[in-house]
Computed example of a mutant assay.
Amino acid sequence: MQFRTQIPISKSNNPIDYNSKVLSIGSCFAENMADKFDYFKFQNVINPFGIIFNPVSIEKLFRRVCELDFYQEKDVFFHNERWHSYEVHSDLSNSDRQELLETLNKAITETNKKLKEATHIIITYGTSWIYKNLEREEIVANCHKVPQKQFSKELLSAEVIQKSIQNTIDLIQTLNPDINFIFTVSPVRHIKDGFVENQLSKSHLFTALHQVLKTHNSQLITHNYFPSYEIMMDELRDYRFYTEDMLHPNQIAIDYIWKLFSENYVSEGSFLIMKEVDEIQKSLRHRSFNPDSDQHQKFLAKLQQKINLLKEKLPHITF
C-alpha cells in the first residue's frame, strides 16, 4: 500500500556532473540546495548579490551583470549608519560607501565571468509580492529596514512576471547561449503576506513560469522545471518536515528534496564520487577522544590519502 502520493520528475537531458559549473540565484531555498552542492564539492556559485525573492529584481541584476552596468554613487543610500543598495541583500551593506560600490562592482565582474563559463543556472523564485520605493519609483529587492511608509506593496501580475522571466532568459542566453536552465519555485511560504495572499503569489509564479517554458519547447516544462514546491506541499505534507516556524523546510525535508533533485538532475556517473566525498566529509567531522594516539594518526594518514587520490581525479576539489 502507498501512504503518500509521489511527484513524477523527468530526468534532465543535460545532467550536472563534476565538470559542470553551476550558478544558483534566488530565494533562501536556493541556498539550501547550494549548500548541498558545496557539501558534495560540485563547482557551484550561489547568490553573489545575496538572497533575492522576486522575478523583477532577479532580472535587474542579470541586466547589470550581462551589460556590465556598474553601480555608481547614485545607486546607493545611507540608512542606520550603513550604505545600502535597493537592488541587493543587506548582507552586502557596508559602513563605507566606496567599499560597498567596490564590492557590488566586483560582484558584477565576477558574475559576468562565471555566467559565461557556467554550464547550468538554477533560478528559484520566491514571491510575486514586491515593494516599490515611492521616491525612486522602482521595485526593490530589499527594503533594508527603511520605514514602510516609503514603499508601496504590490502583487506582480502573471503577465509582468512572464515578461520578466523571458527577459532574464534572453539576457543570459546573449552572454551564454549554451547554458542549461533549471527553474523552481521556493517551497517556503511567505505567511507574513497572508495565507491567501501567499497562495495567490505562488500561483502567479507558476502561471508565468510555465507559460514561458511552454513557449520555448514543450520538453522544457518537464526537463527544466524542478517541482520543489510541489514535493514539499504534497509528498511532505506534514508539519514534522518543517522548522520551528512551521514555514521553512527542515533538514529532513531539504535532504529529501535534494535526493530527488540529484537522482534526476545529477549524472549517474557522479554518484560514486559523491559517495567518496560524503565519506571524506564525515571523516573530517570525526572528533577523536585521543588525538595523539597512533590509531588516530593512522586514521588521519588514511584520510589524507583518500583526499589526495580524489584531488588527482578532480583537482578543483578542496576540503
Rank of each mutant, 00 (worst) to 15 (best):
Q98N: 15
N19K: 12
W83F: 13
I25W: 11
S157T: 12
Q173Y: 09
V196M: 12
E81H: 15
F261R: 03
A141N: 09
L309F: 12
Q281I: 09
I58A: 01
H316I: 11
S93T: 01
L213W: 04
K306R: 12
H316G: 08
D96L: 05
K163H: 10
L260F: 06
I231N: 01
L61S: 04
E154S: 08
E110S: 11
Y225G: 00
F183C: 00
E67V: 12
E154W: 08
S201Q: 02
L171K: 12
L209Q: 02
F226K: 01
S267C: 07
L220V: 12
H120C: 02
K282E: 13
K60Y: 11
R136G: 01
A253L: 06
G26C: 12
I254M: 07
V185W: 04
R285E: 14
I108Q: 07
I7E: 03
S283H: 06
I51H: 03
S57L: 06
I46W: 07
Q305N: 14
L68Y: 11
S164R: 03
I51S: 01
S164L: 02
N290Y: 09
N142G: 07
L200C: 10
S57N: 05
F181H: 02
M233Q: 10
L23Y: 05
K306M: 08
K302E: 15
S186N: 06
F289T: 14
L314G: 03
F271P: 05
N250C: 10
K114L: 15
G26M: 13
S262E: 13
N47Y: 04
S57H: 04
V277A: 01
L101H: 07
T103G: 11
S157V: 05
T109R: 14
L100E: 07
K313Y: 06
W258D: 02
F3H: 13
V88S: 08
A107K: 03
T184E: 01
F271Y: 15
A118N: 02
I280S: 08
L300Y: 07
F62V: 08
T111W: 05
L92I: 09
C28M: 10
